[in-house]
C-alpha cells in the first residue's frame, strides 16, 4: 500500500514519518518513533492505555489514524518531564502508590495532565468521572485519585501548568 508522508510535533520536536493511510497513530508512535510509553490494551477505544494528547485534547491513539496527526502536536508520557524534572503528576503517582504493573500508567498520566488543565481544582467525583476513559486493573483507582488530587494542589500552588 502506498505510504504517505506525515509530519507533526512529538513532545515538542518535529518528526517525519512514512506510513500507510490505514496505520494507527499508536503503531506509528511505538514502532516507528520508538515511543513505547503509550500501550495497547484493547484496540477498541475502551481502555485508555494508548491515551496521548493531540492538539490539546486527550485521544485514544488506537482509534486515530496516524495521518490525522498531520501538522499537529502530540504529547506522550515521554514528554511530561521537563529538563529532567518530573511533572508533579509523575511525582505524585509515585508518592501515592498510584501504579502497580505500570501498564495503564502512561495513559493515566497523560489523561490526568489534560484533565487538570480542563479542571484545575476538581472534586473527587469529578476526578473519577474525568479519568473514567482509562482502565486500571491493578490499583482499584483509590490511589490514582489521590495522586491526581495531590498533583492538582501542587500545580495550583505553582500557579498552573
Amino acid at each position: 500500500m502506498a505510504k504517505t508522508h506525515i509530519s507533526f510535533n512529538l513532545n515538542g520536536r518535529p518528526v517525519d514519518v512514512l506510513a500507510e493511510p490505514r496505520e494507527l497513530l499508536i503503531h506509528v508512535l511505538r514502532e516507528q518513533l520508538a515511543h513505547t510509553g503509550p500501550h495497547i490494551g484493547c484496540e477498541t477505544s475502551h481502555c485508555g492505555a494508548c491515551t496521548v494528547d493531540l492538539n490539546g485534547r486527550s485521544v485514544k491513539s488506537c482509534t486515530v489514524l496516524a495521518v490525522q496527526a498531520q501538522g499537529g502536536n502530540v504529547l506522550t508520557v515521554e514528554g511530561l518531564a521537563t529538563n529532567g524534572t518530573l511533572h508533579p503528576l509523575q511525582e505524585e503517582f509515585m508518592q501515592q502508590h498510584g501504579l502497580q504493573c505500570g501498564f495503564c500508567t502512561p495513559g493515566m498520566l497523560v489523561r490526568a495532565y489534560r484533565f487538570l488543565q480542563e479542571n484545575p481544582n476538581p472534586s473527587e467525583e469529578e476526578i473519577r468521572t474525568g479519568m473514567s476513559g482509562n482502565i486500571c486493573r491493578c490499583t482499584g483507582y483509590q490511589n490514582i485519585v489521590k495522586a491526581v488530587q495531590h498533583a492538582a494542589k501542587r500545580l495550583q500552588a505553582a500557579g498552573g501548568k
Binding site: V77, E78, Q90, L99
Partner: peptide, 10 residues
C-alpha cells in the same frame, strides 16, 4: 520500579 513506569520506560 516506579521511576521507569512513570516515564514510559517500562
Amino acid at each position: 520500579e516506579d521511576p521507569r513506569f512513570i516515564q514510559g520506560k517500562g
